[in-house]
Design a protein around this nucleic acid. Structure first.
Lengths: 216, 216
DNA sequence: AGAATATGAGTGGTCAGACCACTTTCAAAA
DNA sequence: TTTTGAAAGTGGTCTGACCACTCATATTCT
């Protein structure tokens, strides 16, 4: 199972170490060579893990100085999210609910915002919906982007990334209906209906995933 | 300037290459060895870039087979996301909105849940509301806990810490009314009213903070 | 003594080469 | 024709070696 993606294990190990050693934001963490030896992995493999942590905003590397825990507060958010999701104490239900929570709020925000200049957006949106390559995640991600809340977008992104893509699989015609209904309601700024349709889709998706055997 | 973070340049190069070569989702991209030679970089450096792309969900690697463009197609959006994640520029407004978003969702969840065994909770809740030591934050935190979504609670907790405690200061009688109204509506499982009252309070609080000069 | 300079250790950044585990392919053997 | 297995290609990993940079220390100069 976990033959590949070792660097993800290392990510977890590093995180655990940080917690045990009680390293605080801004503090320096052991050098790459130290970490590699301590964890019994090659330095290049360890660096791949560090790149991941850096990309997520958890750490910050300074050439010639070392690697530091990111000092902006944001790092805690990522840590909590990754901990909650990658680790054993995670609750899939909570992750699902929280993601849905952000999605619903996004729809609400879109409906409340101005729509003048967004008419074109809906047209192109509907066009892409016809495309075979259009995926579930594209639909939702577009909504999240349109909501305009970048922090919420980031949280949503992390949740979908780490919780074994809930939007995998092929799109059925039934779902297209849900999407279309949601879009239509949004265009008419009918938030309640839009959210209702979206939640119905989410519910439908959830059940299908369970019957198919949910991954990860 | 760009002496370090070379792997970020490679990320961009690969992205450009994908665009130029018109590689479509699901297609295979050149092997690591090929790419490394073509771009005149070491394979390990190139792999660090690939890890980043993988983490962002742009590519997918399969051992023994190769590296493939992920099933996303809306690369523009992914680019937006990647730049956003790479350079973490969040605004206070987003933090405030996101926190409120979780709070509203919590109230909604509480109203939907069973209330049989929660009667006692409301009594003790109201009692503590009388207490002078009862703070704004206690009120909201209690709601978050009652929602039952632990992930949402954690996120909320972090956001509260980030935005330089938005609940600092003394509680005015006017606020007590907001709280009481919110509580009352929740008891009656009237989610709409409860949320309306809560948002009104939040709005009021926001304005007061602005007039007082908000701290980070 | 005080200040400017040189040195060396330590760090992240990069590279090349070597295995390993795995998948696919296709030619040889049944 | 079917089966088998050897080879090629791929991502995953490790090692050891440089390089560029930072910083603390020792050294030298004024």
């Amino acid at each position: 199972m976990n033959q590949s993606k070792r660097y993800l294990d290392i990510v977890r190990d590093i995180r655990d170490m940080i917690r045990q050693e009680k390293i605080k934001p801004g503090d320096r963490i052991p050098s790459e060579r130290e970490l590699a030896e301590k964890m019994q992995v090659g330095r290049s493999t360890l660096r791949e893990a560090l790149r991941s942590l850096e990309l997520l905003g958890l750490i910050e590397t300074r050439r010639g100085e070392g690697t530091f825990l990111s000092d902006y507060r944001n790092h805690k958010l990522v840590e909590v999210l990754s901990t909650f999701i990658l680790q054993d104490n995670r609750s899939h239900e909570d992750v699902w609910e929280t993601r849905l929570l952000h999605e619903v709020a996004a729809i609400q925000a879109i409906c409340k915002s101005e729509t003048e200049s967004q008419m074109k957006i809906w047209d192109s949106f509907r066009l892409r919906l016809q495309d075979e390559s259009f995926q579930r995640e594209d639909f939702v991600r577009e909504l999240m982007v349109l909501s305009g809340n970048r922090l919420s977008l980031k949280i949503w992104f992390l949740l979908t990334q780490y919780s074994g893509n809930p939007y995998a699989g092929t799109v059925s015609p039934e779902e297209i209906d849900f999407m279309n209904n949601t879009l239509l309601a949004i265009e008419q700024q009918d938030a309640d209906t839009a959210i209702q349709e979206f939640q119905a889709w989410s519910e439908w998706l959830k059940k299908e995933r369970i019957s198919n055997g949910n991954n990860t």
